[in-house]
Design a protein around this nucleic acid. Structure first.
Lengths: 291, 291
DNA sequence: TAAACATATCGCTTTTCCCGATACTAAGTA
DNA sequence: TACTTAGTATCGGGAAAAGCGATATGTTTA
């Protein structure tokens, strides 16, 4: 019977690179890890690590077993989180963080729907970058976050897609690009690009650098203003650009080649430890109708 | 730290109805189960069972924890299966069981594609009902099965959908129903229905009894023959009926109301213990192009 | 060759695990 | 009501294991 401790020793060894390092990481004696791995190998009737060199190397069998072991540990972590959640009461205040660029005009509708069910819960909204939101969820300063889909969401966060936001390329009406039809990407490279970069300097996966000359801003409304003033072209969520387009200050870039705009998926994230609570299920359910 | 033994005791208790019954099921002393549950409750800081009556009743907290505990055990079982699979060699013979009603004409194409990669593997095909196939997979007399999607596939079987088969209602050209357009289901009830029933008498979820008068057969080709001879109307996979339709013996029922035929999903099933082996992955990959 | 870092093994102690016995409780039955 | 049956909690003791530190030994690197 594989025990959780054995599996932890196994996965920790793979991640730390050696039995000793795994032991340090798990605050155990090195001999304990060694024994766990040996027992695991006996149970599997297979060698999991090649021990010729200084550092143990995963064998083929080890590679096959690793994802299964991780899956058990993930599920075990989820169980632990659920158990912790059993002792929590419905919170009196819920903080919802939104990635900049997600339309919040319609969010007022959440309040009424959720308040009818949970009249004593107060809501607080704040705006932050995806990375900051994930950090806050991680440290449990925050329980619900709404961000554009990121590839790497930590396994202790639950998420579900609640809709999409359309992005397009925009430029000021007075800008040279507004008059011509670009036949390929090179047309864009000749002009300055306006790009989002959040405080922690990591640009998001869909904020691609295309032009060699780039100006950065840390939120979409500054980008919008820069674009309106003719400082360059820019990828913006449609709802951010809407007013300026209607007033004629901004135009969608006329493009010959492939459609450059796209639909960004919007996810709602919650820490596993809380995502099963009724009030948060209700919140997610309400959010699903948001976009 | 929740141990696997604790979780097994917990789930077994829920399933067996009492600590004692769980102990018998797990071949342990009753006091062991009792202790496991008590420790679990201490770890959770919550009562999992109400012990007022003779039999323990799950509390709200217990209900919340149960699915998580089951998930951990499922994942643990999967790990065990993977570990067992490490000691297995590529088989020399693969038996593939097909639900009756799945077109096997195109299956010849599998042979060539798989043989080019695994020239020493021989293939054997056999035909059986979905239930028999699941039984055989269960007892590991068989490793790969192809059936119409069933709602209840045991958790130790892996499955993936490889396509669909279209079913329609057919009747002999000479049959009274062939001449009229039924406006509703009642038109069908006036005539005998021909229905599939496999040997173990369980009818599949999409073999619905509609008419009060039914004749049964245990495979689609007997049904086809009965239908051609004008004995009633019948739901058949299109590929089974094709020849008879082309020769003019059989016609698709002319229906006024909703389209009665539908697409049945076809799944390939494999036992977890084997589904990670290369040759079976290759087999599934080939099967995906089948329908 | 020495220093630094690894792993396996061996006693040894501490802890856990499991069983059986026992006392007690709940529900059904004569 | 008393008896039977089925259940749970707790206790003590023996067996098993888990964990630790010490030690012998192997591998890299400087």
């Amino acid at each position: 019977m594989f025990s959780i401790e054995q599996l932890q020793a196994f996965v920790a060894t793979v991640e730390a690179g050696s039995f000793s390092a795994a032991a340090r990481g798990l605050s155990k004696a090195q001999s304990v890890i060694s024994q766990h791995i040996i027992n695991l190998e006996i149970d599997c009737n297979a060698t999991l690590f090649e021990r010729t060199g200084r550092y143990p190397q995963l064998t083929e069998a080890g590679k096959q077993l690793l994802p299964q072991a991780k899956a058990v540990l993930n599920q075990h972590q989820r169980l632990t989180n659920s158990a912790l959640a059993l002792n929590e009461k419905t919170p009196t205040e819920i903080t919802i963080a939104l990635d900049e660029g997600i339309p919040f005009k319609t969010i007022a509708s959440i309040i009424s729907k959720l308040q009818s069910k949970y009249p004593y819960v107060s809501l607080e909204f704040l705006s932050a970058s995806s990375h900051d939101i994930i950090d806050m969820l991680n440290s449990e300063k925050l329980i619900t976050g709404i961000i554009f889909s990121e590839l790497n969401i930590p396994s202790y966060l639950d998420y579900e897609c609640i809709g999409t936001v359309k992005f397009d390329l925009y430029v000021a009406k007075s800008h040279p690009l507004a008059g011509i039809r670009c036949e390929n990407m090179d047309g864009l490279r000749l002009h300055r690009q306006l790009l989002l970069r959040s405080r922690n300097t990591q640009t998001s996966s869909f904020q691609l650098k295309i032009s060699p000359e780039i100006w950065y801003a840390d939120n979409y409304f500054v980008l919008l203003e820069l674009a309106i003033q003719g400082n360059g072209w820019c990828l913006l969520p449609n709802h951010v650009a809407l007013d300026a387009v209607q007033s004629g200050e901004l135009v969608k870039l006329p493009l010959e080649f492939e459609e450059m705009g796209w639909l960004a998926n919007v996810d709602v994230l919650q820490h596993q430890r809380h995502s099963n609570q009724k009030v948060f299920k209700a919140l997610r359910s309400v959010l699903r109708g948001l976009l």
